[in-house]
């Protein structure tokens, strides 16, 4: 194994460790951690087995093997960003509904307090 392989294996393992740590400390939800764990494992495999890129490039008929890695990662990141945008839109809608609900309930509380003659 070459030096660069040790470095990449080391980095992906550190990355994996960080992801696990975040999940354990409840700073990252499990459902979001899956994609990060999978990609870390994938990168680890590529780091261990260097020729995997060439095998894939041969299979797809790609002339320059590393480019297949770039395009795969690029696509993965784009898809993940889209997924995040969808989640954000959904959450924005949920926040909107909650805010409206809070406003309406607060108004009701004020009205009830006024009816019962309680000062604020």
């Amino acid at each position: 194994m070459s030096f660069i392989q040790y470095i990449s294996i080391g980095t992906t393992l550190i990355f994996l460790f960080i992801v696990f740590r975040l999940v354990v400390k409840k700073q990252l939800r499990e459902e979001f951690s899956i994609i990060w764990i999978l990609s870390a494992i994938l990168l680890n495999i590529i780091a261990f087995w260097r020729d995997s890129i060439e095998v894939m490039a041969d299979f797809f008929g790609v002339y320059y093997p590393p480019s297949i890695l770039y395009i795969a990662l690029f696509l993965l990141i784009i898809i993940y960003c889209l997924h995040m945008s969808i989640l954000l839109s959904r959450q924005r809608n949920q926040i909107k509904n909650l805010s409206q609900e809070i406003a309406i309930l607060n108004e009701k509380i004020d009205a009830l307090n006024l009816k019962n003659g309680e000062a604020e």
Binding site: I95, K96, S99, Q100, I102, A103, I104, N106, E107, D110, A111
Partner: peptide
């Protein structure tokens, strides 16, 4: 006497809709 106070800035659409929800309720 009665008004709604939104806890977040929702923009005109969200503000009007909260009024509409009030009307519905």
């Amino acid at each position: 006497t009665n008004f709604l106070n939104l806890p977040n800035n929702l923009g005109i659409g969200g503000a009007v809709q909260s009024g509409i929800k009030y009307a519905e309720r």
